[in-house]
């Protein structure tokens, strides 16, 4: 199972999906587009200690965290 983790006021919301299921992958891709369209940045751990920004949906990414747009404090 892969999971999309979205930061929110509850701490986070987790959306697991099965990369082998076309329907679940489509849902996950739709969520990815919605979130990045709203200004969220997607980051994924690609190796131990190595994190990258994910600019397009990739169902092979096992764990992806979305953080909201940044503003000056």
């Amino acid at each position: 199972m892969a999971v999309q983790i979205v930061m929110d006021r509850t701490g986070d919301s987790r959306y697991p999906f099965d990369p082998a299921s076309a329907a679940e992958v489509a849902d996950a891709e739709r969520r990815f587009r919605q979130l990045t369209g709203r200004g969220f940045t997607a980051a994924a751990r690609v190796a131990p200690g190595r994190v990258e920004i994910i600019r397009s949906f990739d169902p092979r990414v096992e764990e992806c965290v979305f953080f909201p747009r940044l503003v000056g404090g």
Binding site: R9, G11, D12, T41, V51, F67, P68, L70, V71
Partner: peptide, 22 residues
Amino acid sequence: FVPVGDLPAGDVMLAQKLALEL
């Protein structure tokens, strides 16, 4: 700099880490 939304401190710190590192 902070992420928008009323996020708990742990999320804010993680967003700051990811932003600076990425």
